[in-house]
């Protein structure tokens, strides 16, 4: 990967190896799947108007720990207010997250990612500020999901994991850390 840099004319650009681009795209597609599993594909469609018309979403927090972190309660120790808030806002939040993940996939496709195997060309993405924020949001969602799967609940967990990850965790941890690097360069470039 060639890290994100702000170009003189304003766009924020990076280059990915084909396998890196495919990984990002797959993770974003999984994120979309996960969110749609929560609300059904209809409700997760990126149509704000449809969301506004049918404002009666779920009231219980998701049982899945990843979804629970992505769609957290807005009120602590106050289940009634948390349920009411969730009922009116969760579907909108879910569809915003789907839209962000889709923006990442779209930018990679625009940069040359194709379904065809053995694509050798590097994938070059150039983001405007809005797309850069959508990328940051979805990279965050993916890292939160991987963090839950890796059992990272405290900063101490992370240090422990870095020292003694099991073999099966190592690959996930590598991806998690690489996504952190992508995010870091994106935040830095967008701040200039």
């Amino acid at each position: 990967m060639k890290p994100f840099k702000r170009r003189r004319k304003g766009g924020i650009a990076a280059e990915f190896e084909p396998n890196e681009a495919l990984l990002l795209s797959n993770l974003a597609a999984q994120m979309i799947e996960l969110l749609r599993d929560r609300n059904g594909s209809q409700e997760s469609s990126a149509d704000p108007l449809a969301q506004m018309v049918g404002m009666s979403g779920p009231i219980m927090p998701p049982e899945d720990p990843v979804l629970n972190r992505l769609l957290p309660d807005a009120y602590r120790d106050d289940p009634d207010n948390a349920a009411e808030f969730r009922r009116y806002t969760e579907q909108m939040l879910t569809s915003q997250k789907v839209t962000n993940a889709q923006a990442l996939i779209d930018a990679l496709i625009e940069g040359g990612l194709s379904e065809a195997e053995h694509s050798r060309a590097r994938i070059e993405v150039e983001l405007n500020d809005g797309a850069a924020i959508a990328w940051m949001k979805t990279l965050t969602d993916i890292r939160l999901a991987l963090g839950i799967r890796l059992g990272i609940e405290t900063e101490a967990d992370m240090e422990l994991l870095e020292q003694e990850a099991e073999e099966y965790e190592r690959q996930t941890l590598d991806i998690y850390e690489w996504l952190g690097f992508v995010q870091e360069t994106l935040v830095e470039a967008a701040s200039r």
Binding site: L71, P72, A74, M92, L93, T140, D141, L144
Partner: peptide
């Protein structure tokens, strides 16, 4: 503040309202 909390959730930050 509810709008802010929802926005924070979209950014992936853990936010609550009190």
């Amino acid at each position: 503040q509810e709008r802010h909390v929802q926005a924070m959730h979209e950014y992936g930050l853990w936010a609550t309202l009190e």
